[in-house]
Design a protein around this nucleic acid. Structure first.
Lengths: 154, 154
DNA sequence: TTGCTCCTCACGTCACGTGAGGTGGC
DNA sequence: TTGCTCCTCACGTCACGTGAGGTGGC
């Protein structure tokens, strides 16, 4: 019931996905564009997030009667945004990346420098160490529950 | 020049620290209270953070002529706040902890349940895995710089 | 006419940072 | 008088979430 990846008001096609929905709706592939709901579903982000990225000038879908239309290029940009976010970059940093290499070679390349890559590794390593310290402390706390239990019952 | 841990307008003493400043200013130990600047320095937090915790009802220093005065009890509460924050708890969760066990046995006990401890461990383990995945990806990207370099020069 | 999807404000959340402008006591 | 420390607004940051209220096309 809910698997209509092709909306009624315009021809659409899923890209870079596993081809689901494409076979059952061949008319969609005539125009390689998607609405906000379809893009959100495909990339696992909210519609609010897509509007927010647009407000931050990370995306710029064109409009058809006030409705946002995402073409292949916009979805490539979004793929890079999602990728960079998963690597812990801020939207400000991502904006610079997209400006630095607007198209490059599709969705794969992020357009980060070696230095930027190195700094991000150091940042994440620091965060990881902080989390590991917290985990060690929490595990000590966790064991102490059993120590208390043993001393109160034994 | 900047090591006056004892301000001029009220008697103060450093507690739970390594006793620095206490020997050179014995008058301070007559009243076991501190100003916002001293508390901030001792706990390594900003004055803004202390005011923010107060606005969130996590702290409630008394006032002397409009100036915040932190006694031993308040500093114990702050110690628990700082500790809980380092373990990744939100201020909302910390507020509940402080309400659940207002005094308990000083700064050491956080007043978290076994279940809360367990859930926090799971949350941090998830975050850690996300960071590790990002790190792996970034390290792949980092090596690719050398692959490119080698193929362009060799 | 109803239901669905889209839209634009605009305030809320989280944990503070950062001025702006003013006060008090040495 | 100057310098220091304290104070209270109040807006800014980050990445959205969450209504509110309205539109368009089947």
């Amino acid at each position: 019931m809910n698997d209509r990846s092709c909306a009624s008001f315009s021809g659409l096609a899923a890209i870079d996905a596993e081809g689901r929905g494409t076979a059952s709706a061949p008319a969609c592939s005539t125009r390689n564009v998607q609405t906000i709901a379809e893009v959100a579903a495909e990339f696992g982000v909210t519609q609010r997030a897509l509007r927010f990225y647009e407000a931050k000038c990370l995306l710029a879908p064109r409009r058809e009667g006030g409705v946002r239309i995402y073409d292949q290029g916009e979805r490539w940009r979004l793929a890079r945004i999602v990728k960079a976010k998963s690597l812990g970059f801020t939207l400000g940093e991502i904006h610079q990346m997209l400006s630095a290499s607007p198209e490059d070679d599709g969705a794969a390349a992020l357009g980060i420098s070696r230095r930027q890559c190195c700094e991000q590794i150091e940042l994440l390593e620091l965060r990881k160490r902080e989390i590991e310290a917290a985990l060690a402390e929490l595990r000590r706390t966790y064991s102490s529950f059993y120590v208390r239990l043993a001393s109160s019952t034994g």
